[in-house]
Amino acid sequence: MNFTTALARLLVFPGLLFALPAAWFFLWVERKAVALMQGRVGPPFMQPFFDFIKLLGKTTPPRKGVADLLMRAWPLLAAASAAGAVGLLPVLPMSGGFEGDLILLLALLEVPSMCIIAAGFSSRSLFGAIGSAREAVLSVSYNIVFLMAIVSIAASQHTFRLEALAQLPASPLRWLGILALLVCLPAKLHLNPFSLPNAEQEIYSGPMTEYAGPELALWELSHGLEWVAATGLVATLVAPHLTLWWLAAVVFVAICFAIVLLLSVVATATARLAIDSTVRFYWQCTLIFVVLAISSALFTRLRS
């Protein structure tokens, strides 16, 4: 991958030019799906876009006793790294990539959650601190499962290169890993059984309590980009290998859409779990599957 293709992937497809509308679209689909399932009409199309523009035009009330520069830096860092993660997705066939880009993608996907933790603590708000502590505990719980699922997929196919993973035919082992990834997605995207960190109304807005105006707009944006990156990662692992570039792009978007719908159904059907139940869920129930997946991946690798 040379400099121009890297820049094109970061800025055009699947980077910012595609990812921004996709982020707003996915946020709208999630809100609309939840509304329809609750028997409501739901927000109009382009609502997340209007929210974003409106937040850009709002003033920020003064904050006392807070490192202002630091507070501004966190949402910027979160949005930038989420956009970078989207840019790494190998949507188009023959799109390049490099050995180990899966590891970079995982690291970039993790940065927004780190930023949320840091933002909550640096806002010096009580609710921010509670939200950040919850986010940290949640991150420790689901990341074990998330990372082990990825490692099991990569180990079963002998590569850490995303494009190679996308091209290889899916083995039964990979499906086990993908299932584990899907179980982690609600926690990663702060959706309903695991919406602990931003628990609306319960702890006000959690780590975002002290944010307003353009900074809040960036947080919303980084959340939307996280949606695109996380669903896109699963979609690239699920999607069949196609040589036609436009068909590959259409299939990618369709699978992402299906995953967003699936997550919305789960979010509507469940209520928020307490923090101890969440930790128990990931450490006791899900970990077994992942240990199974990773051990069988290593076993098949030793045999071959």
């Binding site: 809100r31 509304a35 109009p44 920020t60 002290e210």
Partner: peptide, 21 residues
């Protein structure tokens, strides 16, 4: 709630006054 559904107007009930209009 579903019967009146303010979200049609783009309304969102926020937890923090800093987010509100």
């Amino acid at each position: 709630t579903p019967r009146y559904d303010a979200e049609q107007l783009g309304v969102r009930l926020e937890g923090s006054p800093r987010h509100a209009d």
